[in-house]
């Protein structure tokens, strides 16, 4: 599903969190939203999902104007940073939740729901763990359950908020490769938020670099590295002498404006 965003604005009081964002996401694309904390990347992701009210602009899912659709109607697969798995439900119940809450008219039969849940579990390589509870899983397993749960509703777009943020370094690398493979297999339009330039540049087809509520550059990883459009982008994706992307912390928010935005988001 192709997504186009036009003049999307969002402010907290007098502080702008998103400044008239224009963005086109191609169908089947894997797009990264990259930026320091407070740059507006998570706000943009949540606005696409319909979790965040906006002050102006439009969001289009293919031919559908999604601007006025509720979260439920948008049918986006959202993977939360800390997964938000339902603690009191088994893995299978978590995954099939989106099918089970449908109106009876649209709800598949019970056996069909179970079959699809098990299929998804196999897809995320967790076959046989359907009866487990979230607290009995490792971090990486939880993340995959969250992904399967989002895929179960056959979403128009897959939105991932810092998908690897809560994992340790080793698992993070493995899951990154796996997510790329899964994306290529399933072909869902996917947007993920990250503050880790290495992650964005290695994984995504295109990278959106954000700063202080505005888009600095949208381009392929190579283009961003070779021809940074602004000084901010250049500094943010700086490479060290050995040719590795700097693993250092992202630059701190520098403008007053951004610091306020940061404080608002954190608070």
């Amino acid at each position: 599903m192709q997504i186009s965003i036009r003049q999307l604005s969002k402010s907290y009081g007098s502080v702008a969190a998103l400044n008239a964002i224009d963005l086109d996401i191609a169908s089947g694309e894997l797009l990264a939203l990259l930026g320091p904390s407070g740059s507006g990347k998570t706000t943009l992701l949540r606005a696409i999902a319909g979790l965040e009210p906006i002050n102006g602009g439009r969001i289009q899912f293919g031919d559908i104007d999604a601007t006025e659709l509720s979260v439920q109607e948008r049918r986006v697969g959202f993977v939360f940073q800390h997964y938000a798995l339902f603690k009191h439900m088994s893995v299978l119940d978590n995954i099939t939740f989106g099918l089970r809450v449908r109106k009876r008219k649209y709800r598949p039969a019970r056996e069909e729901i179970r079959r699809r849940g098990e299929e998804l579990l196999k897809l995320v390589q967790l076959g046989g763990l359907e009866a487990r509870y979230p607290n009995q899983l490792s971090g990486g397993q939880r993340q995959r359950v969250a992904l399967a749960r989002a895929l179960a509703i056959e979403p128009r777009v897959l939105l991932l908020d810092e998908p690897f943020g809560a994992l340790d370094a080793k698992v993070r690398k493995e899951l990154r490769v796996w997510l790329r493979q899964l994306h290529d297999e399933t072909g869902y339009t996917t947007v993920f938020v990250t503050h880790d330039q290495e992650e964005a540049l290695e994984l995504a087809d295109r990278v959106v670099v954000m700063n202080a509520g505005s888009i600095e550059q949208v381009d392929t990883p190579e283009a961003i590295l070779r021809r940074p459009a602004t000084r901010f982008v250049a500094e943010f994706v700086e490479r060290d002498a050995a040719g590795h992307y700097t693993a250092a912390h992202p630059p701190h928010p520098r403008t007053v404006h951004e610091r306020v935005a940061h404080a608002v988001r954190v608070g």
Binding site: A49, L51, S70, V71, Q72, R74, R75, V76, G77, F78, F80, H82, A84, F86, F97, G98, V101, R102, R149, A150, A152, I153
Partner: peptide, 19 residues
């Protein structure tokens, strides 16, 4: 976040609260 997750999965407000 749990309620938001339920909503993105299509649950109505009542379903999110009750389930």
């Amino acid at each position: 976040q749990y309620e938001e997750a339920a909503a993105t999965l299509g649950a109505t407000r009542w379903q999110a609260v009750s389930r």
